[in-house]
Computed example of a mutant assay.
Amino acid sequence: MTTDLHLNRPRRHFILTATATAAGLALVHPLAQAQGLPESARIFAGFAPGGTVDVTGRRVADKLRDVLAKSVVVENRTGAGGQIALTALKIAPADGLTLLVTPMSMLGIYPHTYKKLPYDPVADFQPVSQAVRFDFGFAVGPMVPASVKTLADFVGWCKANPKDANFGSPAAGSVPHFVAELFGRAASIDLKHVPYRGTQPAIADLIGGQVASVSGPIGEFLQHLPAGKVRLLATSGAARSKFAPGVATYAEQGFKDIVFDEWFGFYMPAKVPADALNRAVIAIRNALSSPDMVEALAQMGLEARPSTPAELAALLKKDSERWAPLIKTIGFTADS
């Protein structure tokens, strides 16, 4: 794995290099720059169209057009809880024209739940930039009576209706899966897990009455709240989400240990040349820092958070180490 901008090279050197590259790019006339660009670049997304991973990738792709390449497209490589997209990135050319946007779960959680993965989360990928951070929401749908408005209400309903006590998540072994699992354990209810290929398919079944509840990124629920068919019962942050200030957190409702958030990050194949990495880092930072992008992401419950490659690598390490003992406590293994 390329380590120049990952761990070994001082961050100051990276910033100076990136600044110099940005200054160089700024001196190039836009038309001349576009004429010298590659024809196309692509961003892999491991989840279904319409979800926050997919939409984040598409928003950034729009900003990278005529900056990273003349055309930048998002390819949805769904399946295996995001692993198919990661595997595709692993074998893609390390030419700076193929990226991946992924939740942390696939890199920081899966190594603790799968005996064997088709990729090494550190050796096979080059961190580029964090994209966004977000809290999780826990929502119920038409299967659950309108009188259920809090987690305590839901716990009571589950105990009275054990056969219907279930929840959907975007993938088995993902953070939203474990957040709901920890909630069920803390509440002493047997919440059965129903995995999906993304949160939006889970919400579709929630609205259709096929599943009682869904745990997923808070932004996935926002568009469905006005119609009233989806009701948020809790959010997972340390404080109430600014995107749903009227909804109490898990901690406020008595589940003090359920305080979690997550992030999406951009990655490239390992051994991508330093100049190609620098170009991508600068382009993504500029994209995520633009006011219209910040506003567009906020509408999906996402906070734009660009970073350096080294910062993203350190963040992944920290989160993976936090989840390791929790997963052991839960006892989940994806291979069982």
Rank of each mutant, 00 (worst) to 15 (best):
T2A: 15
T2P: 09
T3S: 05
D4M: 08
L5G: 00
P10E: 03
R12I: 13
H13T: 10
H13E: 09
F14Y: 13
F14V: 02
I15T: 11
T17D: 11
A22C: 08
L25H: 14
A26Y: 05
V28Y: 06
V28E: 12
Q33P: 00
Q33L: 15
Q35W: 06
E39K: 08
I43D: 06
G50F: 01
D54M: 08
R58S: 10
R59V: 15
V60G: 05
K70A: 07
S71Y: 01
E75R: 03
N76A: 14
N76Q: 13
N76Y: 09
G81C: 09
G81S: 12
L89K: 00
L89Q: 08
L89P: 02
A92R: 08
A92K: 02
A94Y: 05
A94N: 10
L97I: 09
M104L: 14
M106G: 08
L107S: 11
P118L: 15
F125L: 15
R133I: 05
F134G: 05
F134L: 14
D135F: 09
D135K: 09
G137I: 08
P142K: 15
V144L: 14
D153R: 14
G156V: 00
G156W: 11
P162V: 09
D164Y: 00
F167I: 00
A172P: 07
A172W: 03
G173W: 05
V175C: 06
P176L: 11
E181G: 02
L182M: 10
A187F: 04
S188R: 15
S188V: 07
H193G: 04
H193M: 04
H193L: 14
R197E: 13
P201E: 06
I203C: 00
I207E: 15
G209Y: 06
V214L: 07
G219A: 07
L222V: 00
L222G: 02
H224E: 08
A227K: 14
G228H: 01
L232A: 12
L233V: 08
L233F: 07
A234R: 05
K242Y: 01
F243M: 14
T249Q: 08
I258T: 03
I258A: 01
F260M: 08
G265D: 04
A274Y: 04
L277V: 15
R279K: 07
V281P: 06
R285I: 01
M293Y: 00
M293T: 12
M293S: 04
L302V: 06
E303I: 10
P306S: 07
P309R: 09
A310W: 13
E311H: 10
A313T: 08
E321I: 13
I327E: 11
K328I: 03
K328C: 07
F332E: 14
T333S: 10
